[in-house]
Design a protein around this nucleic acid. Structure first.
Length: 425
RNA sequence: GUGGCCGUAGCUCAGUUGGUUAGAGCGCCAGGUUGUGGCCCUGGAGGUCGGGGGUUCAAGUCCCCUCGGUCACCCCA
């Protein structure tokens, strides 16, 4: 065990795994840009109040999971526990023209006990779209993640949707639910028996049998939605249908952050354990911008967990990155000067080239060439050096009609780059 | 924050009722082949047995503490 280790709940991602990570982000970036979203890069830390106000004072994320510290100027700072609040803050600060559509890929930090699919530093991909209240925007946002899912080839993913209502109907429902719960408070699970009044909606989300039984008889928000919310949700659902996106309505989908209104949704991966199977979660937050000091502005977005998506891909055997192997390995048993110059020339020509160092033996260098995955080795020994040529050795099958492993030919040094570019194409 | 399980080489793991100098496979390095990778053979490097304390003539092994990993709860991506 080494003297220093990555802190609890964090991890190092080395190649080749890191290329899967990179490839996922790149794929998402392409889809987001394709849909008119622009990259937003905002600070990894913010005034702690941004999160307590934005995410909700009473949420677990705020009360017990934030990395908070005081900086040398006496400011109380928090490492971002999620991506939405910072993006909305950036919007309020800069006021770009509406509609404003942004995407991001960022580390997030939450002080929790690590577990499969849960880390203290994890990574989120997300989008936020501010301005329109049009339900078609809700459809677009969901379709964006659905597009990523499809492009990855992930199959075991379920989309669950719900409407949280808005300021016109949610408070009324909350009161109705609260009065129902006050009649059944004794039947709730141990945790909620005392705490349900703080946030009655949380009970709907509880997995304990006691709460599940109670909620079975509870009044439903779907029956309390106002006409406007009802119409919005209907248009959202029919829009999903029109795009061929399958969904399941879940009356108990109550997401943990305070800012959601109307549309909420989650993508769940069946290959993961139920406790951490949400690979993407999001919804509308029509009050958040105002809450953070901006003008009343509707918004919607989602955040997707990179580690969890990667985990789901691994479970389904989905290969992400056709990892870019070295194409040409230069073996130089003379002095290394040729290796230096030839690899540089190959790289300038866009060919992935590598070499050995420290004057290793021919055998050792060829072994490294083999390990690198290169299809060809370019060998420079005393004979080649004297004749101004290189020996090209095929290390692998080269496809139909090509030379097989072990076949060699000589090429004039000056022709190498062009010849290799032709072979490796 | 609470609970279960687990820490021996870079990786995966053996290590008997406590008993000489802690092993294997894979990987790595070198040689077998003074110009040829993969397969094979031979050899080599690599370990504060997670850390600290205790019991004992003797601790990888038993006890306590601690750190770390992992899984679950809570909650979330």
């Amino acid at each position: 065990m080494s003297a220093f280790q990555a802190p609890t709940g964090t991890r190092d991602v080395l190649a080749p795994e890191s290329s899967r990570f990179e490839s996922l982000v790149a794929r998402f970036a392409r889809l987001a840009e394709l849909a008119g979203y622009g990259l937003v890069v905002s600070p990894m830390f913010e005034d702690v109040a941004l999160f307590s106000r934005g995410v909700g004072e009473a949420t677990d994320v705020v009360t017990k999971e934030m990395y908070v510290f005081e900086d040398k100027g006496g400011r109380t700072i928090a490492l971002r526990p999620e991506g939405t609040a910072p993006v909305v803050r950036a919007f309020v600060q800069h006021r770009p023209v509406l509609p404003w559509k942004a995407w991001y890929a960022t580390p997030c930090f939450r002080y929790e006990r690590p577990q499969a699919g849960r880390y203290r530093q994890f990574h989120q991909l997300g989008v936020e779209a501010l301005g329109p209240q049009d339900a078609d925007l809700d459809v677009e946002v969901v379709a964006l993640f659905e597009g990523l899912r499809r492009s990855l080839g992930l199959e075991g993913v379920e989309l669950r949707v719900n409407s949280m209502g808005d300021a016109a109907c949610l408070p009324g429902y909350r009161a109705v639910l609260a009065s129902y719960l006050s009649d059944h408070g004794e039947e709730l699970c141990a945790d909620h028996r005392t705490s349900w009044s703080r946030n009655p909606l949380r009970v709907l989300d509880c997995k304990k049998q006691a709460c599940v039984s109670v909620r079975a008889g509870a009044p439903l928000l779907r029956d309390a939605l106002c006409d406007a919310c009802e119409a919005h949700f209907d248009r959202f659902l029919s829009g999903l249908g029109s795009l061929g996106i399958r969904w399941t309505r879940d009356d108990f989908l109550v997401r943990g952050l305070d800012y959601y209104t109307r549309t909420t949704f989650e993508f769940r991966a069946s290959g993961l354990d139920a406790a951490q199977d949400t690979i993407c979660g999001g919804g509308r937050y029509n009050g958040l911008v105002e809450e953070l000091g901006g003008p009343p502005t509707p918004g919607i977005g989602f955040a997707a967990g990179v580690e969890r998506i990667l985990l789901a891909c691994a479970v389904e055997g989905v290969e992400l990155a056709p990892e870019r192997a070295t194409e040409v390995f230069v073996v130089d048993v003379v002095g290394g000067g040729s290796a230096r110059d030839l690899t540089d020339a190959l790289r300038r020509a866009g060919v992935a080239a590598d070499r050995a160092f420290d004057g290793r033996s021919l055998k050792s260098q060829l072994k490294q060439a083999d390990r690198s995955g290169a299809r060809v080795a370019c060998i420079v020994g005393p004979e080649e050096e004297a004749a101004g040529v290189v020996t090209v050795r095929w290390m692998r099958e080269s496809g139909a009609g090509g030379p097989g492993p072990g076949r060699q030919e000589r090429v004039a040094r000056g022709d190498l780059v062009e010849a290799v570019a032709r072979w490796t194409r």
